[in-house]
Simulated assay, not measured.
Amino acid sequence: MIEYGRSIRWFNDYRDEIEFSSLNKFTFMQIWFMKGDLILDKVPYPKEEYVLNSNFPVIIHAVYDIDDYDKYNDELLRILKVLNHKEVIIHPVCESAPVNSKTIYTFADNIYKTNQLLKANNIKLYIENNSVIDKVNYKASDLKIVFDKNPEVELLLDIAHIDDYDHLQSILEVKFPKCIHIADKRFSEEHEHLPLGQGELDFELIFKKYLKGYEGKIIFEVVDEDEKIIKSKSIIEKIFEDK
């Protein structure tokens, strides 16, 4: 079954974001976690208690630098427990150290240790593929190293991070995703997250050929005006209605 979620506009009032999501039939929202904190501009501390008491489902998207795992795993786990979550996304980056041939192995080891902690608490981990600008966990060969070390971990496929459809196919040959980030992009740009219809991605082709049979979470990473988010969702809904 397809579940539609959206990345929260962290700069908006949280209650307004819930109202918009509910009115437009999103069943959950994605909240970012960075450097030990939930990224929500207009939410009082403790933020996780406010989110919990707001009674609208969310999933945490944790952006982790290469040396963040030992620093922030305990706080991430604490927040997940407060929220009674059984799933979490980690988006790996490497900004604090140069990327070399050993980096992906360090990352795979970090994921292994993190997943052991999460698994002990019955929490499923999704790992996101990167775009070319991040240099790590971007190529299919990188993903293979990570998932060979961590076969129980799931792939979160960010479609806007692909270079082309050959790149997409190579990723899918490593692991089929259980969760997807959706935004549009132009192939001439290394990294973009545009509203659907403003880039060059052929979503009908993607879902009818490359991701045929997909069932799982779809998270719209379209942080724009209301109408652009609504239009983006309608494009994907129509593809699934026509299948």
Results as ranks from 00 to 15, higher is better:
residue 5 G to P: 04
residue 6 R to K: 15
residue 7 S to C: 14
residue 8 I to V: 14
residue 17 E to P: 04
residue 20 F to G: 03
residue 21 S to N: 07
residue 22 S to R: 15
residue 22 S to P: 00
residue 26 F to M: 07
residue 26 F to T: 02
residue 26 F to L: 05
residue 27 T to S: 15
residue 28 F to Y: 15
residue 28 F to G: 02
residue 28 F to W: 10
residue 32 W to T: 08
residue 33 F to V: 01
residue 34 M to H: 11
residue 38 L to W: 00
residue 39 I to M: 14
residue 41 D to Y: 12
residue 43 V to Q: 01
residue 43 V to H: 07
residue 45 Y to F: 11
residue 49 E to A: 09
residue 53 N to P: 01
residue 59 I to T: 11
residue 64 Y to T: 00
residue 67 D to Y: 14
residue 68 D to W: 03
residue 75 E to A: 06
residue 76 L to H: 04
residue 78 R to S: 13
residue 81 K to W: 05
residue 84 N to E: 15
residue 86 K to V: 08
residue 87 E to Q: 14
residue 89 I to K: 11
residue 91 H to C: 07
residue 93 V to M: 11
residue 95 E to T: 12
residue 96 S to T: 15
residue 103 T to C: 05
residue 107 F to T: 10
residue 108 A to N: 08
residue 111 I to Q: 03
residue 114 T to R: 06
residue 115 N to G: 07
residue 115 N to R: 09
residue 116 Q to F: 08
residue 118 L to G: 03
residue 119 K to F: 12
residue 120 A to E: 13
residue 123 I to R: 11
residue 124 K to V: 13
residue 126 Y to R: 10
residue 130 N to Q: 13
residue 131 S to H: 09
residue 131 S to G: 15
residue 131 S to R: 09
residue 135 K to V: 03
residue 137 N to R: 07
residue 139 K to G: 01
residue 140 A to V: 01
residue 141 S to Y: 05
residue 141 S to L: 07
residue 146 V to F: 09
residue 147 F to V: 05
residue 148 D to T: 11
residue 152 E to Y: 10
residue 158 D to R: 10
residue 162 I to A: 05
residue 162 I to F: 09
residue 162 I to C: 04
residue 168 L to N: 02
residue 168 L to Q: 01
residue 169 Q to C: 02
residue 170 S to L: 08
residue 170 S to V: 00
residue 175 K to V: 02
residue 178 K to N: 11
residue 179 C to P: 00
residue 179 C to Y: 14
residue 179 C to M: 14
residue 181 H to D: 00
residue 186 R to Q: 13
residue 195 P to R: 12
residue 196 L to W: 07
residue 199 G to R: 10
residue 199 G to T: 03
residue 201 L to K: 09
residue 203 F to S: 02
residue 203 F to E: 00
residue 208 K to W: 03
residue 210 Y to M: 02
residue 212 K to Y: 08
residue 218 I to S: 02
residue 219 I to H: 04
residue 222 V to P: 05
residue 226 D to L: 03
residue 227 E to A: 05
residue 231 K to Q: 13
residue 236 I to W: 04
residue 236 I to C: 04
residue 236 I to Y: 03
residue 243 K to Y: 13
